[in-house]
Amino acid sequence: MSVNDLFKQELKVINLGLKSFQNDLKSQGVTTVQVNWKPKAGGKKNMLNLLGRISKTKKL
């Protein structure tokens, strides 16, 4: 969807991170969903790299 198409649509937001940003959006009636995000693979960099490679292979 192009930027100009976005301008014509209702804004619907997926929020990853600070919950207060989602609360502010909700207070304005914006449809949002909060992701219960935590670092994948316990945040360990070597595991993250491995996961990244697996995910790219899957897409190919």
Binding site: K12, V13, N15, L16, L25, V33, V35, N36, W37
Partner: peptide, 21 residues
């Protein structure tokens, strides 16, 4: 609260913006 971006995308048809902090 879905546990990942991909499940959030599935749970919210028509989502058009991701806010990352």
């Amino acid at each position: 609260q879905p546990s990942s971006l991909s499940s959030a995308i599935q749970s919210m048809p028509g989502a058009n913006m991701v806010l990352v902090s």
